[in-house]
Amino acid sequence: MSGPQVVAGATMMCSFGLAPSTLAVLPVKGVLASAPSANIADMAAIATIPPFGACTSLANPTVASATSAALGVLTPMPCVPVPAGTWLPGNTKVMIKGPPATDVSCKLMCSWGGVIQVLNPGQFKVMDV
């Protein structure tokens, strides 16, 4: 595993977002660490990946339109993430109801060009001292 496993409550950030967001993991997999554990398929917009405040990507049609209306002045608009696939690379040593687990090294691409990454996995490995 590349790092701590990601669980519900993990903090994420998009490279084009203006605010962090919190991962929601539905407790349907039956796998709990300190909270429901995420796998690479936990990437549904709004349901598991909430908005990141406002979006600044010109690839986002609402941002492009607002920027055009403002005569070229970048105009951020509300962020509605559009995941382009699953979290990558995933931890193939730990499977959660089929798909690999999501760990802190995983990234998720947004269709608007952003890269979503985990800032805080929601749990940390405890080491004996």
Results as ranks from 00 to 15, higher is better:
Phe16Cys: 12
Leu18Trp: 01
Ala33Gln: 10
Cys14Ala: 10
Ile46Glu: 08
Gly17Gln: 02
Ala47Ser: 15
Pro50Arg: 01
Leu23Tyr: 00
Ile49Leu: 01
Ser37Gly: 07
Ser21Val: 05
Gly17Cys: 04
Gly30Met: 09
Ala33Thr: 06
Ala35Lys: 12
Ala44Trp: 08
Phe52Leu: 08
Ala8Ile: 02
Ile46Asn: 09
Ala8Pro: 06
Ala33Glu: 06
Ala47Phe: 12
Leu23Ala: 03
Ser57Phe: 06
Val28Arg: 04
Asp42Asn: 15
Ser37Lys: 05
Thr48Glu: 15
Ala24Val: 14
Val28Ile: 13
Ser21Leu: 06
Ser15Asn: 11
Ser57Thr: 09
Ala38Val: 03
Thr56Glu: 10
Ile49Thr: 02
Val31Thr: 15
Ser15Trp: 06
Gly53Gln: 00
Met12Glu: 01
Ile40Glu: 11
Phe16Tyr: 15
Ser37Tyr: 02
Ile46Pro: 04
Pro51Lys: 00
Thr22Leu: 06
Met12Leu: 03
Pro50Gly: 03
Thr56Phe: 06
Leu23Arg: 00
Cys55Thr: 06
Ile49Asp: 00
Ala35Leu: 09
Ala24Met: 12
Met43Gln: 13
Gly17Val: 01
Met13Val: 13
Ser15Arg: 08
Leu18Asn: 03
Val28Ala: 08
Leu18Glu: 02
Thr56Asn: 11
Ser15Ala: 12
Leu32Cys: 08
Ala41Thr: 14
Ala44Val: 14
Ala24Gly: 08
Leu26Lys: 03
Ser21Gln: 08
Pro36Asn: 06
Val31Lys: 14
Leu18Ala: 05
Met13Phe: 13
Ser15Thr: 15
Pro51Gly: 03
Ala24Trp: 07
Gly53Phe: 00
Phe52Lys: 04
Val28Glu: 05
Pro27Ala: 09
Thr56Tyr: 05
Ala38Lys: 01
Ala19Trp: 03
Ser37Leu: 14
Gly9His: 05
Ala41Cys: 12
Val28Cys: 05
Lys29Ala: 13
Val28Tyr: 04
Gly9Asp: 06
Thr22Lys: 09
Ala47Met: 14
Asn39Lys: 10
Ser34Pro: 05
Ile49Cys: 01
Ala19Val: 05
Thr22Gly: 07
Cys55Arg: 04
Ser34His: 09
Pro36Met: 01
Met43Arg: 13
Asn39Tyr: 11
Pro27Thr: 02
Ser21Glu: 04
Leu23Ile: 03
Leu23Thr: 01
Ser37Arg: 06
Ser21Thr: 12
Ser57Pro: 11
Ile49Lys: 00
Ala45Ile: 08
Met13Trp: 09
Ala24Tyr: 07
Thr11Ser: 13
Met12Ile: 00
Thr11Met: 11
Leu23Asn: 01
Cys55Gly: 11
Ala54Glu: 15
Cys14Phe: 02
Pro51Gln: 02
Cys14His: 03
Asp42Lys: 10
Asp42Ala: 13
Cys55Met: 10
Lys29Asn: 15
Phe16Glu: 13
Ala10Asn: 04
Ser37Trp: 01
